[in-house]
């Protein structure tokens, strides 16, 4: 549940999502759910000439299981805080 909360803090920020079929989508993160399905708004595809399938699409739902990477800006993440939280969650789930 930690990364669900983490992604909720990133709502309304600009992110780039790389999918497992090598498509990269850049857009504003609009919502997340428990499976880390993402919803992006105002998307643009990094390789539009090669994959124009999403040309007339602005609002997109991405299934969490097909996401390879989510690229974030450095200042969006407090790595120390996240690491600490991850550790704490691991500890609490062990008990």
């Amino acid at each position: 549940m930690l990364f669900f909360s983490f992604f909720k803090t990133l709502v309304d920020q600009e992110v780039t999502v790389e999918l497992k079929n090598d498509i990269e989508l850049k857009g504003t993160l609009k919502s997340v759910d428990q499976f880390l399905n993402l919803k992006l708004d105002n998307i643009s595809c990094s390789d539009e000439s090669k994959y124009p399938h999403l040309l007339s699409v602005r609002n997109i739902f991405i299934r969490g299981s097909t996401v390879r990477y989510v690229y974030l800006d450095k200042n969006m993440v407090d790595t120390n805080l996240l690491q600490d939280a991850a550790r704490r969650e691991a500890m609490s789930s062990r008990k």
């Binding site: 079929n21 399938h53 999403l54």
Partner: peptide, 23 residues
């Protein structure tokens, strides 16, 4: 399902991708 996007082109409903030479 990988993703599903909302089509918003009411002006050109089915844009002609066939002629674009899509990979």
């Amino acid at each position: 399902v990988v993703c599903c996007g909302l089509l918003e082109d009411s002006a050109n409903p089915e844009l002609d991708l066939a002629s674009l030479g899509v990979a």
